[in-house]
């Protein structure tokens, strides 16, 4: 090589001062960006824990977790979280029952049956659906869904769990569709061809090969969607009512953990009172529920990756 590069005669052992300074600064700035989210998470968990611990100094954790009456503002107050937990399960479970079959069906349609042109139309519509603010769903539940529910089931309360389940189902639908569709489409083309080459019909291939191969990713999408439904707040606070009670009847008015937190944090509970601290204890419970669901979904996804590699 006859060409002489600018660095050809540079000292190879030590980086130049300016370059080292820039590299070091960038490293620090990027580290701070990453650290911000970590510190925020740690901070939130700490606040939840500290305030909850004060609450559990007054109320036994056994009573909290097993009590079946939630009347924190009565005299004497009772702090059994089960009615709120029950309300959350009712709404999240109901929305899952509605959204999972619909979402899976739509995902299979988009991935296996729809023409590319149809997919190009449907996917943006799903994205729009995902972008609608949850408060809009909340008042749609009251002004639109509730009258329909009450015309079918005259015994239903104006605010009831079914209202909330229906709108939450619509809210989590795009998540199920898009995550499940991604998983279905990531099933290698070679598997599809292998099955078609054996004289399988589209239904055979979808049910017998594609779905089983994509099963763990689909399960993970369901669980993530349920976690989203558990944490959903605004629509539920508006549509489901504010009556914490132990019921599995979707036509009853109920209250979820999230709706309770909304109600209490906008109320007039002075800081440091037991009523104020309840929202941290409920928040911690809620956080643990969604955390468990997220961890479960990650675990299932990890297993799927191992299966493919």
């Amino acid at each position: 090589m006859s060409a002489v590069l600018p660095h050809a005669s540079a000292d190879l052992t030590a980086p130049k001062g300016q370059r080292r300074w820039i590299e070091g600064t960038m490293h620090t700035i990027l580290w701070l960006c990453a650290a911000a989210s970590v510190f925020t998470t740690v901070g939130i968990v700490l606040i939840l824990l500290v305030e909850s611990l004060q609450f559990f100094g007054h109320v036994s954790i056994v009573e909290f977790l097993t009590g079946t009456t939630w009347t924190p503002h009565s005299n004497p107050p009772q702090f059994g979280i089960l009615p709120l937990f029950c309300g959350t399960i009712l709404v999240a479970g109901g929305s899952a029952v509605i959204a999972i079959p619909l979402g899976l069906g739509a995902a299979i349609y988009l991935s296996e049956y729809a023409s590319p042109r149809m997919r190009d139309v449907l996917k943006p519509i799903l994205e729009i659906l995902a972008g609608i603010p949850s408060v809009v769903f909340g008042y749609l539940a009251i002004v639109f869904v509730s009258p329909i529910v009450r015309s079918i089931f005259p015994s239903a309360d104006i605010f009831n769990a079914l209202n909330a389940s229906i709108v939450v189902a619509i809210m989590i639908l795009p998540m199920i569709v898009s995550l499940s569709e991604d998983t279905l489409r990531s099933v290698p083309r070679s598997l599809r061809e292998g099955a078609y080459a054996l004289g399988a019909t589209k239904l055979d291939v979808t049910v017998g090969v594609i779905l089983p191969a994509a099963l763990s990713g689909i399960m993970a999408s369901f669980i993530l969607a349920i976690a989203r439904a558990v944490g959903e707040t605004m629509a539920v606070a508006l549509a489901a009512g504010k009556r914490p009670q132990m019921t599995l009847n979707p036509l009853d008015s109920i209250q979820t953990m999230t709706a309770y937190i909304v109600e209490t944090s906008k109320g007039d509970n002075p800081q440091g009172t037991l009523g104020y601290q309840t929202i941290f204890a409920v928040g911690l419970t809620l956080f643990l529920c969604t955390l468990a669901l997220n961890v479960l979904a990650q675990w299932i996804l990890k297993r799927m990756r191992e299966q493919y590699e």
């Binding site: 070679s190 598997l191 061809e193 292998g194 099955a195 080459a197 089983p212 191969a213 493919y308």
Partner: peptide, 8 residues
């Protein structure tokens, strides 16, 4: 096929 493609 070129690449073996057993079903899982």
């Amino acid at each position: 096929f070129q690449k073996s493609n057993p079903f899982p």
